[in-house]
């Protein structure tokens, strides 16, 4: 089941909070100002600042998909969780159901919205956030891709909120010590 699907890897040590990904995503996906398909959280500890980029975790067991009353949100064979704008009624159930806060109601479109991993760009082009990052803090690909394998094998990768049972597929490396 967990075959060759898309995954996303964030290297927290490389992120220096320049927000390139946020602006690139906003422009690429026409995300309204004040709403985020990707965002970057900032943590300040003693003598240390850490930025943690966030996106939709493209879960294998996505609670948002279960919550949608009209089957507008769905999972692809390649592991992406997507929304069909033509079907979505903008009820907000999925927004409530996502444990990562990755969804929002798009006030311009009138539908639920979230990261698509730039489904319209891949695999020929990189997702906008991955492409723009000046430090390679974000890497994406299929599980079998060299770029992904290299990072996941070398570094201690974790997922967020594994306890939810959502089986997220956005991995974080160098997250240790960030509270």
């Amino acid at each position: 089941e967990n075959g060759d699907r898309y995954v996303y890897v964030v290297d927290v040590s490389k992120c220096y909070g320049c927000l390139s990904c946020v602006a690139a995503c906003a422009a690429e996906n026409n995300v309204p100002v004040g709403y985020f398909r990707t965002w970057v959280e900032r943590y300040a500890m003693n003598g240390r600042v850490a930025f943690v980029p966030k996106i939709c975790n493209h879960c294998d067991n996505p609670s948002c998909v279960h919550a949608c009353p009209v089957n507008a949100t769905y999972k692809t064979e390649e592991g992406l969780v997507l929304i069909d704008d033509e079907i979505c009624i903008g009820c907000g159930a999925c927004i409530q159901a996502c444990p990562y806060g990755a969804r929002f109601r798009n006030p311009v479109k009138g539908t639920a919205d979230k990261c698509t991993l730039c489904n319209h760009r891949i695999p020929e082009r990189l997702p906008a956030c991955v492409e723009s990052c000046p430090t390679s803090a974000r890497v994406y690909g299929k599980m079998s891709d060299k770029a992904v394998k290299e990072i996941l094998s070398k570094k201690n990768a974790v997922v967020l909120k594994a306890y939810t049972g959502n089986e997220p597929h956005t991995y974080y490396v160098s997250l240790t010590g960030v509270e």
Partner: peptide, 25 residues
């Protein structure tokens, strides 16, 4: 970004002499 990435990859060490903290270690 190149400085940050090279540092994170262990290719470069940076001493950041400044009244404010660097944006990543």
């Amino acid at each position: 970004g190149l400085i940050v990435e090279r540092a994170a990859e262990g290719e470069l060490k940076v001493y950041y002499v400044n009244p404010t903290a660097p944006r990543t270690t």
